[in-house]
Amino acid sequence: MSDFLDILGSTALYATAVRLALPILFCALGEVYAERAGLVNVGLEGMMLCGAFAGVIGSHYSGSPWIGALVGMIAAIGVAAIQAGVSINLSGDQIVVGIALNLAVLGITSFLARAIWEGGDVPKVDGFSDFAMPLLSDIPVLGPILFKQGALIYVALVVAVASWWILTRTSWGLRLRSCGEDPRAADSLGISVFAYRWKSMIICGALAGLGGVFLSLGQLFTFSDNMSGGRGYIALAVVIIARWSPLRALWAALIFGICEALALRVQVTDINVPAELMLALPYVVTLIVYAGVIGKSRPPKALGREYSRG
């Protein structure tokens, strides 16, 4: 038990937690845009996986993780464009399209990994290595947790704050949200619901792709089949728990980071908890937290509903 408390009190746990929370955070931030505009994007998982894979490809052939990140984002935007086209313009069921995309991306990435590398053995590529920020990393507790990570953590923090500002403090954000609350009223005011929903989905794709890139280039420096492992779905839950707020998403994503980090830490100590059961923890906690907040959160009114003029 005291071992367990030691782990809970160690800064190493929280540093790992932040690292593991980031891919989920990126996805959740993207999903906030989509859902605020009225789109449920279950394809998040596929976009993330696509980003993770394309990121590795980009980094492998260019030797630069930044190019990899760019390629990952573009590829995920491609998936988002299919999701947007079919669900917005063609009024396909948003959820069904997302599931089909997830399955297709899972197949295509596993296929291409084998087509490019014999047996699907993806080599190690250049990723984002950790570096200590001068001065900031010397702050006790907070320093090692936040300021000794790879570069993408700063991108994540900036995106979270910027997203909050854009969505709640700009007229562009107001218009985007109006498309998720009452698209017909928005349309009658001359706001193009289709255009705003498209933009929100493209942003969502870019951020989910970045989340995937962080998974492959920020943590493991390689790609393995289905490496997103349901994190896209966890991000869907994070958005609900965060009540569609980019800032609250920071905390919500961190909860899951801590669970995952705990599962990893406990495995390497001699605490007598089976590793497999610890690995189930993030999913159990998702359910519990989700159940805890459900009455308090109110989704955008037109969430998940297709919009057609006429």
Partner: peptide, 10 residues
């Protein structure tokens, strides 16, 4: 490759 089936279905 086996994943062809998945791609096709998706």
């Amino acid at each position: 490759p086996t994943s062809t089936a998945q791609i096709l279905i998706g």
